[in-house]
Design a binder for these strands. Structure first.
Length: 380
DNA sequence: TCTGGGGTCCTAGGACCC
DNA sequence: TCTGGGGTCCTAGGACCC
């Protein structure tokens, strides 16, 4: 199909933008809370996460001063220390972060009933029914930022755009303490100069593939014919292509749909070698108990059990098994894990670095179903 | 550089069915 | 003797996000 036809290739609906979405992201959240609690940390390169004594683990969050040295979240602590020798490390006060996050989300709720919290430092608000235009949205965002700061002495970055993904991208372009408004007609021009990794979902691997094909910026991708994009980069590539060309790639359902949880898991890395399978099982049993308890709390049953095992050389395996009927007991999980673990029984337990268990293929037990189960149990 | 933990989504191959 | 095609489910691995 010729380039000229591309505009008509996708449905009208896909091109239409009829929402105003605000995205808020707390700046370097964990690190900022630590600095607030201990002002002597201000201005220093700070990381939260990892073990300060052993220098093991990874960076959870880092201050902007640390980012100047190339430190970023997910980076091994040992590497961060090499990049920035005078780095200050704190382990993190997670209960405090949760409390602060809850307070802030409570504030945000006043700005729109339609809200979606994504993690403890970010949220989307649907302002479509709250404001009449983007200028009004900007004013509201300024109030919101002031409110957050007045209440918690923390800054945030805000993006306003016609959908969630664009609002997020917009907010990322002005950090910290930024506010960016992106209107529908400005989208392609706004995205064009941005690095392709500005698109959420384009990470290290995808970037390599894009670069190999001459795509460095969003604008480079936008210029390619869409058939070529699909051929080279697949389904997700095409979706990204639509995004950078100003199409609305999000379903306009009006409200944010909250999705059911798909899986519950727990995994543990051993920071010292275990010498026998019994100790491995202590860890597995504890994980099984945790995840089954969570499933029960959420009133969900599950069919698939997955064992994850990682060796010292970082070779990682997953083995899963789907039960014929939905299950909900620790005993059932333990039996499956036991069978799945047999495959590794010839390995030395010293060599195991991590074990984990996941339950998935989940279903909500509604009240109706529950009474049915009770009925059958009684007649048994 | 020596790599945490909890998630989601995608891909690809194989089994099985009609 | 050389073997369709579509659909669905299961499993393993991997990219990515916060």
């Amino acid at each position: 199909m010729a380039l000229a036809n591309q505009a008509t290739y996708f449905s009208e609906k896909e091109q239409s933008f009829d929402s105003i979405i605000l995205y808020m992201d707390l700046d370097a959240f964990f690190a900022s809370v630590e600095i607030r609690e201990n002002p002597s940390l201000a201005g220093k390169p700070l990381i939260v996460g990892g073990n300060p004594k052993t220098k093991r683990g990874v960076v959870s969050t880092c201050s902007y001063e640390a980012r100047k040295f190339g430190v970023h979240s997910g980076m091994p602590v040992s590497q961060a220390v090499k990049l920035c020798p005078h780095l200050v490390m704190v382990r993190g006060t997670y209960s405090l972060y949760t409390k602060v996050s809850n307070n802030i989300m409570g504030i945000l709720k006043h700005y729109s009933d339609v809200m979606k919290v994504a993690g403890n430092d970010e949220a989307h608000l649907d302002l479509t029914d709250v404001v009449s235009d983007y200028e009004e949205a900007r004013k509201l965002a300024m109030e919101l930022k002031d409110d957050v700061y007045a209440s918690e002495k923390l800054t945030c970055s805000v993006g306003i755009a016609p959908n969630k993904i664009l609002a997020k991208i917009a907010s990322e372009t002005d950090k910290p303490d930024g506010l960016v408004v992106l209107k529908p007609l400005e989208i392609s021009d706004f995205l064009a100069p941005l690095d392709i990794t500005a698109i959420p979902g384009v990470g290290k691997k995808s970037k390599e593939i894009f670069i190999r094909n001459g795509v460095n910026t969003c604008g480079d991708l936008a210029k390619l014919p869409h058939q070529l994009v699909y051929q080279k980069f697949g389904k997700y590539g095409l979706k990204t292509w639509k995004l950078v060309n100003g199409y609305n790639t999000e379903k306009t359902e009006g409200k944010f749909v909250s999705r059911e949880r798909k899986s519950i898991s727990e995994e543990r890395t051993f920071f010292h070698s275990y010498s026998n399978w019994k100790d491995i099982w202590v860890s597995l049993d504890s994980s099984i108990q945790t995840i089954v308890t969570k499933a029960k709390e959420k009133k969900m049953n599950f069919r698939t059990v997955t064992l994850k095992i990682r060796f010292q050389n970082f070779d990682t395996y997953t083995r899963s098994y789907s039960l014929q009927c939905y299950a909900n007991s620790e005993k059932q999980v333990r039996e499956v894990v036991s069978i799945l673990l047999e495959e590794f029984s010839d390995k030395s337990p010293d060599n195991i670095r991590l074990v984990g268990v996941k339950i998935s293929n989940m279903i909500k037990i509604d009240d109706n179903q529950k009474t049915l189960t009770q009925f059958f149990n009684k007649t048994d």
